[in-house]
Design a protein around this nucleic acid. Sequence first.
DNA 1: GGTTACCTACCAACTAGTAGGAAGGGTGTC
DNA 2: GACACCCTTCCTACTAGTTGGTAGGTAACC
Lengths: 192, 192
Amino acid sequence: MEHPQSKADEILRCARSLIIKGGYNSFSYADISNVVGIRNASIHHHFPSKSDLVRKLVAQYREEAAAGIAELERNVSDPFEQLRAYVGYWEGCIADATHPFCVCALLASEIPVLPEAVVLEVRAHFRGLSDWLASVLERGAAQGRLTLTGTARAEAEMFMATVHGAMLSARAYGDARTFGAITRPLLDRIAA
Amino acid sequence: MEHPQSKADEILRCARSLIIKGGYNSFSYADISNVVGIRNASIHHHFPSKSDLVRKLVAQYREEAAAGIAELERNVSDPFEQLRAYVGYWEGCIADATHPFCVCALLASEIPVLPEAVVLEVRAHFRGLSDWLASVLERGAAQGRLTLTGTARAEAEMFMATVHGAMLSARAYGDARTFGAITRPLLDRIAA
DNA sequence: GGTTACCTACCAACTAGTAGGAAGGGTGTC
DNA sequence: GACACCCTTCCTACTAGTTGGTAGGTAACC
């Protein structure tokens, strides 16, 4: 706890990167111990089971996402610019290949084989993101800044799905620019 | 080969269902042998390695997808109705939970940890699907039946991404209706 | 007699997870 | 200040089960 970057946190960070590569079943404790300077068994001291590790990893990810959104709300007032900043954040992540996929989007695709505790966290992320997007769209529509075709909720779900699908296509094509090519028209379309 | 449903085909079908559940690393040869009445080692007779198995599985999936599209082209003339039929096909698959996810969409999310041969097949599926969607959109626009905001290609990529994202959201929420809730506005939007 | 399809028996490597101990720091008590 | 005690962190050593894959044999069919 006293370290600026505790071992437990290093493990979480490492596991996150590994999950982003290929999901829950694509990494092992051995993979983590190879990167973080720690023995396989020592990981169990911090996280008794793999399910624990990933649940806490997603919980931490959700906290960071919430913090990022809060900062966006503080620094950017215009709803359209908020959406553009959100999309731009991911465009950057994909372009520099640091975290080229949303942890929860990746885990969501594997839900049938995931521990229940992890599923609940992933689902909560989807709801949280959708809620925020809906609130932004609603505000934008009220200000006459955005044009919605359906309800804010429906538009938010579609927006989120398209962003996730764009991540997938970028990965499938092996071309980071795909993400922007899909999301730019998405933004243009809702701009008033 | 002589059997109406050969053992090799049974293995491919079974592996496909297992992949749809949670991807490449979520199933083993043991899982297959438990379902298909065959010994673990015998699977290697038909498919020397797991990479071979999954590559052929995706190739078969692509053939079936191409056949489905060809049938659609034969039976449905109106571009908008073609798109609606395509989306409706997936809505049915998700509702009855038989194949509630596109094999290639799932594998695409795991690309960094997939054998190269599988990646090429997955990428080819994305290109093929995008090509078809673009051709339908182009035709629809030329007939004045559909309204495109960007190029047919860009619109096709966005359409595909949204459909994939809708599968993901349906899985994340654990609610099949989510898919329709996202794709219906998607179709409405491009209808002239 | 060769090919195909399947079998038993095996393997080394890896999986998540456990048992038990050593080193270190913090704290309460005398 | 010294000592005992405990808690945290990490270690070595181990385990049972699973992983994809191999070797070699058998039986049926063309």
